[in-house]
Design a binder for these strands. Structure first.
Lengths: 338, 338
DNA sequence: CTGTTAGCGCCTTCAA
DNA sequence: TTGAAGGCGCTAACAG
């Protein structure tokens, strides 16, 4: 595998390697003539900077690593896409790693990334233990959390950019209320997820304030998949549904509800209204058209990268700090007036 | 951000930095005593190898990059997961990048990766132009293609590991024949995809040999999503379906067919049988239970990594060469006897 | 078993 | 405008 270096080019051009380095880094202190010659040579010989060497020397790399709990949830897949697009635009590249905060070997992953001197880490998690983990590492590498926001957990506050789950829950409750619903269920509440807890809390509070009756349907598993939603909904349908609307903790859960509803010949939204959260792409499909809350992934991801980059330039400012993005209501076809 | 180096440890331990390096790399030539002392110090001061320096010095990194056309297709998401698990087990890490062979700036991505001296690249693609692209870069970095296999395209042969699409197509045809079907449709044939072309060709050939009538329903778009499947199926249902079975080019397409069928009150498998290809996780869900061909992602990914690693150790052997993994039939609930 | 000496490829003063 | 020299952190002979 050929490996033409800065030195080779220097020799070829009859200059020193520092001159080549300068040219490559766009220093103004290079005569137009030599610059041209060097550039030509680089092109001709297919020179390619060795980023390892460059990063080593510069003390920082252009790789941002993101850790996420699995690409199987389309939400993450969609977010990573946006993340990469924006990061590239800002001159960085994304290294995707699987990992959950609860994994016993999660610290190995952090060590590995730190060992590679990544510019920063974006941790996707809504685990309660995430802040603690971050605090343990944030003095060794810039980290920003994506997916938790809990003012109440002040002592555990860390740098974070996230959907405003409280606002989301409120919007949902108000929307359903406006449609005339008075008895609703929050389906899929998962204790281990801070996001879900917040959504649920805010939804419930608002709903009750408005005078609605709300029932809670917890999700005892550790993930929120279509499957889980399907089983929860089945239970609820078997018990006999008293409510006129369901607010699912996320779109995947909502899709499961839809599947179960079909099986029970329950029509949405005629028999019951359904709302999700996340706006995953499936939710927009013609045969689905799920009404949901859009976290504005693009903004969210750009905000996250931006936040990291800002702090990269001013490490001393790298302390706790939360950036919230407001979700917006996306009315489609699964909610009806009662 | 603290940065304790090998030298610091050396000083602290009162030895030279090479001794530290040796201990860290598990050389046998270190006395138990000093080894212990050094290790303790490393632990105490939170020493972390600088992988950049290590890779630079050693001339090779432990990062394998994989390029894929989007995480939105669950197939890729699932594959990447397996890929990462196995790679990690073999001491490598995966860097995920988005990119399609047809992208105008795809060579920039290759240059970037080469610049980072990644150990190798795994390119996920079934584009006809993939082999050419690979040939252009394979003398600069080890690349293995994941997703194409076309013996006919001999001149374009490159290192590849892939599902045996021909076998898959044949299995499908034989299975449907065995169930009594005599008129079938291949739905979602996408010209730009070599995989799909092969599946289709083999399916059609086998079916006709067995005396079945097969109709082709091409997919003129550039991707294979639920959405596309939905629209194709809708068309076919509107035209009036003469056939008793549908073989979809992949599971996503098949899911779209299921959605359309529901809308048309066509029952699967009572009114029509349906088969997919890929075995994405959704396909296994209780409300879906799609009969499909399982590419055996685990084997496939392990084979891919293995292939790359073998060649890494013996670069001179890095020429064309194809490794095929046989898909296996997964009978679930969407195919019936006629 | 251990220390010394050279790099790996690049960037960055400091002089010239 | 350019070159020489030193260093980023680590590995890898080569002597002892």
């Amino acid at each position: 595998m050929s490996t033409v270096t800065i030195k080779d080019i220097a020799r070829l051009a009859g200059v020193s390697h520092s001159t080549v380095s300068r040219t490559l880094n766009g220093s103004p202190n290079v005569s137009e003539e030599t610059r041209r010659k060097i550039l030509a040579l680089c092109h001709q010989y297919g020179y390619q900077v060795n980023q390892l060497a460059r990063s080593l020397s510069a003390g920082r790399s252009d790789i941002i690593s993101c850790i996420l709990p699995g690409l199987d949830n389309p939400l993450f897949a969609e977010m990573v896409l946006k993340l990469e697009q924006y990061a590239r635009q800002r001159g960085y590249h994304i290294m995707v790693c699987h990992g959950r905060v609860e994994d016993p070997d999660i610290s190995q992953l952090f060590d590995f990334l730190i060992g590679h001197r990544v510019a920063g880490i974006i941790l996707f998690s809504s685990s309660r233990q995430a802040p603690e983990l971050i605090q343990r590492y944030m003095n060794r590498v810039p980290i920003v959390l994506q997916g938790i926001y809990d003012v109440a957990a002040a002592p555990a506050a860390v740098p974070a950019v996230t959907t405003d789950n409280l606002v989301g829950g409120r919007i949902a409750a108000e929307y359903l209320y406006g449609l005339g619903h008075r008895r609703v269920v929050y389906l899929g509440m998962r204790q281990s997820s801070v996001s879900h807890s917040l959504r649920c809390e805010s939804f419930t509070d608002t709903a009750r304030q408005l005078g609605m009756a709300v029932r809670l349907m917890p999700n005892e598993t550790l993930s929120s998949t279509i499957d889980v939603g399907y089983h929860l909904a089945k239970q609820i349908f078997l018990d006999g549904l008293q409510e006129t609307a369901i607010f699912a903790s996320c779109d995947s859960i909502a899709l499961g509800v839809m599947a179960a509803a079909k099986e029970f010949h329950i029509s949405i939204p005629r028999d019951v209204s359904l709302m999700g959260f996340d706006n995953i792409s499936y939710a927009a499909y013609p045969q689905i058209r799920l009404t949901t809350l859009d976290p504005c992934k693009k903004e969210l991801m750009e905000g996250t990268v931006e936040y990291l980059l800002e702090r990269l330039d001013a490490p001393e400012r790298f302390g706790p700090g939360i950036r919230l993005i407001r979700p917006v209501l996306l009315e489609r076809s699964t909610c009806g007036r009662v």
